[in-house]
Amino acid sequence: MPSTRTVDPTRRRQAVAAWVLALPFTLVFLVFTAGPVVASLAMSFTDIRRTDVRTPFNVNFVGLENFAALLGDETFRKVTVNTFLYLVLGVPLTMVVALAVAVALNRVTRLRGFFRVGFYLPVVTSIVAVSVVWKFLYREGTGFNSVLAWVGIDGPAWLDSTSLALPSLVVMAVWRNFGTLTVIFLAGLQTVPKDVLEAAEVDGAGAWQRFRAVTLPMLQPVLLFGAVITGIGYLQFFEEAFVMTEGGPLNSTRSVSYFTFDQFGFGNWGYAAAASYLLFLAVVLLTALQFRLLRQRD
């Protein structure tokens, strides 16, 4: 039976071509990304263990048992607090360093590109490799403590202390990460109109006042965006702790990602999936918060 709807042949050809172009990506993406995102959620409601790897559909539905068990798991509570600490220490520190460098770069006329590349350098390097380097820099006698020894200070064993290890890892992460934000903030600073700043200067506003009253408010969306992408990074903190402290001492640097990896290693896959979904939830909430704040501003 001939179709009563006439389809514009150009539109039709376009649609066919579009799907030919879209198909390879879509297939791989559904199988290796979208599928696992859904499967992970499904797994979090089951008791799947390593022994079920060949028969993943042969496991028992356990409802919210994994989530309930996580809330009562002392290690999970510990790693949640640690992850929160990575977030609340790491984000402001990274932002402040990045903003200070960006403001300075924005005032420089010569060599700006050179400095920008230099400050960005740690971002492109492997976290594992720089963690190896910083692990040794933190060790007694080497690196930082030999610098402190020159000025007569007997430096502590940074990574062996339950109170100093986590902040030490954060300092390294700030060094590794601030370059991204510097580049983003610098681009933002260049959109702040010069005439507004000059008008403020004519009105007698000092450099700090101009920064507080003109630059910062105009930079707000960029700062918010920077805070969120940095926050998402710190929520997933893992490699630094894996290499530098192996999560210790006494789990003081173990993160939620690390916990998930551990549970995977122990064979508790449903439990690991549940923990990973709680982390995912935190990422989603942080992103939603960004959109909320941006809308409030408009």
Partner: peptide, 12 residues
Amino acid sequence: PGVVTFVPLFVL
């Protein structure tokens, strides 16, 4: 986050 997908990916 990468940790969300790696368990089902390993099964796959």
